[in-house]
């Protein structure tokens, strides 16, 4: 797909590494990474800083209402520096809300991806180890999940069980597990074909040891790549549900949530929804670029 964004590397000078000084190492670093990847990494770095320090960076309390400052325009629409990104319909500072929303959205996406990976790897290994009927059942679950748009499943679950932050995060964790399970199963099966897993079994190792200590580390890079590619999709899903008002609930705020409430002011105050929209697009774009780059780096066969 985006293989072309990764130009052929320059032959690395002094492969032994002994004559590397800091400057040439820096050069190698930049040569190995095309500018788009560097920009993507920089953006993700910025997002991580926001996740870590959002309350410190925010100029105001993200819940603080100031009715006298309602719908103040941002700097680039002749607003003042008091509220750089303007204010919303209740006079809350958009920048502060944006920072907190980034934090919530990314933390939810991260936890959900972790859940999906754990679930997917466990079930994939389970299928590869037991084969036979257990494997058929898991493959059927994978097919069933892949056949139904996840958004619909998520909406149904939210309708039947109501909404809470924990339930919502766990629910998002069911997104993409089937792809990771499929990959994990395939890789575990091929590891079993290779000698090292069989050899460890022949030593008398338990399945836990074979799968946990040998197969998992050997296939980790491919799994990390597929997790990276899952991550932006979870962000899109979470923001979509929150946009519909069925995801993260007020007073908490997420990126999709901000866009959802901002759309009522699309005519009078478009900045309320534009800033979070831009962050969603840039973040998913950046992670996708990094994911593609990692995939080309580690495992060109994975699609």
């Amino acid at each position: 797909m985006s293989v072309e964004t990764f130009p052929d590397e320059e032959p690395r000078h002094g492969s032994g590494g002994s004559v590397h000084n800091a400057k040439s190492r820096l050069k190698v670093f930049f040569e190995a990474r095309p500018p788009t990847v560097l920009l993507a990494l920089a953006w993700i770095g910025l997002m991580l800083i926001v996740v870590a320090f959002a309350p410190l960076l925010a100029p105001y309390d993200y819940l603080a209402i100031s009715l006298s400052d309602r719908l103040a325009p941002p700097v680039f629409l002749d607003g003042g520096w008091v509220h750089p990104l303007g204010t919303d319909e209740l006079g809350r500072d958009v920048l502060s809300r944006l920072l907190m929303s980034i934090r919530i959205s990314i933390v939810i996406a991260f936890l959900s991806t972790l859940i999906a990976a754990t679930l997917g790897v466990s079930l994939g290994f389970f299928a590869a180890y037991f084969r036979g009927r257990a494997e058929q059942v898991i493959l059927m679950m994978i097919d069933a999940q892949a056949a139904m748009p996840f958004m619909i499943i998520a909406l149904a679950v939210l309708a039947f069980f109501g909404n809470s932050l924990v339930l919502f995060t766990v629910l998002m964790g069911f997104y993409g597990w089937e792809r990771i399970a499929r990959i994990a199963r395939g890789l575990a099966l091929s590891a079993n074909e290779q000698g090292y897993a069989t050899a460890v079994r022949d030593l008398g190792a338990s399945p836990w040891r074979i799968y946990g200590r040998h197969i998992l580390p050997n296939i980790a890079s491919t799994l990390i790549v597929s997790m990276t590619l899952n991550f932006p999709e979870v962000i899109l899903l979470e923001s979509g549900l929150s946009f519909l008002g069925l995801g993260v609930q007020p007073p908490l705020s997420s990126l999709g949530n901000m866009v959802g409430y901002g759309r009522d002011y699309i005519q009078s105050a478009p900045w309320i929804m534009l800033a979070p929209s831009l962050v969603i697009v840039l973040t998913t774009l950046a992670i996708s670029i990094i994911g593609d780059w990692l995939r080309d780096l580690f495992d060109p066969t994975l699609r």
Binding site: P232, L236, V259, R263, I266, M273, V281, L285
Partner: peptide, 16 residues
């Protein structure tokens, strides 16, 4: 790239 990175609500609102 927009097909993968722009959520449909952002696309819809931008067009609107």
């Amino acid at each position: 790239v927009i097909g993968f990175t722009v959520p449909s609500f952002v696309m819809g609102l931008t067009l609107a």
